[in-house]
Amino acid sequence: MSTEPATGSSPVTVTPEAADQAVSLLESESMDTDIAGLRLFVQQGGCAGLSYGMRFDNEPEEDDAVVEMHGLRVFVDPASMNYIGGSTLDYEGGLQGAGFHVENPKATSQCGCGESFRT
């Protein structure tokens, strides 16, 4: 398991808003935020071919990259890192609905709803 520093070059960047929301959700599930974290991954699916997935995990897997920013631990497996390395995880709220959003510089196109992408 590799732990990335909170500053400098990071495989995934987390905004303070995303970290606050995720930590709040982790705490509401009674998960230990010193060990548990948000898993960010890529899976086959969606109209553009690939889609983002997120879930809470109690701890990272052995080969995960672990990013710690703003009190949140983010776990990314090596295969997913190939697609989302350099991305930013943000949280957006508003009239259209609130939720987490991945800004991925490697995505060459996205479907209309923004749920899936192609590299």
Rank of each mutant, 00 (worst) to 15 (best):
N58R: 15
L25G: 13
N104S: 05
C47P: 11
V74K: 06
T3S: 09
P11G: 04
Y91S: 10
R118L: 09
S10K: 15
V23H: 05
K106N: 08
G114M: 03
V23G: 05
T88A: 04
L40I: 11
S109V: 09
G71N: 05
H101P: 09
E27W: 01
S9E: 15
A18E: 04
Y52Q: 04
E62H: 07
R73V: 08
A48L: 07
A18C: 07
G37W: 06
G49I: 06
V74H: 06
P105L: 03
Q43S: 06
T7P: 03
T7A: 09
M54L: 02
R55S: 06
G85D: 09
D64C: 04
S2V: 13
C113M: 00
D63C: 05
G114S: 08
G37I: 10
Y83H: 13
L72Y: 03
D90R: 10
G93R: 05
R39S: 03
A19Q: 02
V76S: 01
Q96F: 14
E68G: 14
E68V: 15
P16Y: 12
V67W: 07
M54F: 02
R39E: 02
G99S: 09
C113D: 03
Q96V: 14
S30C: 11
V14F: 14
S2A: 14
V14Q: 11
G71M: 01
T13H: 13
A18S: 06
P105M: 07
F75C: 02
Q44E: 13
G114L: 02
D63T: 11
M81T: 00
V23F: 04
L95V: 15
P78D: 01
P16W: 14
S87P: 14
T7N: 11
T119I: 08
T119K: 06
G45E: 03
T33Q: 06
E92G: 13
F100W: 06
D32G: 09
R39A: 04
E29A: 12
M31V: 11
Q44S: 13
P16Q: 14
D77G: 01
S80H: 01
I35P: 03
E59H: 06
S24T: 14
Y91H: 12
G37D: 08
D32S: 07
A18W: 07
P78T: 05
R55Y: 03
V102G: 00
P16A: 13
D34E: 12
L26K: 02
Y52R: 00
A107S: 00
D64L: 00
G46W: 01
T13F: 12
L26I: 02
E17M: 12
T13L: 13
V14K: 11
V66M: 01
V76H: 00
D90G: 10
A48K: 09
F117M: 04
A65C: 12
V66A: 00
T33F: 03
E61R: 07
R39C: 03
T108A: 02
Q43I: 12
I35H: 08
Q43K: 08
L38M: 05
I84H: 00
G97C: 07
S51H: 14
G86F: 10
Y91W: 15
A79Q: 01
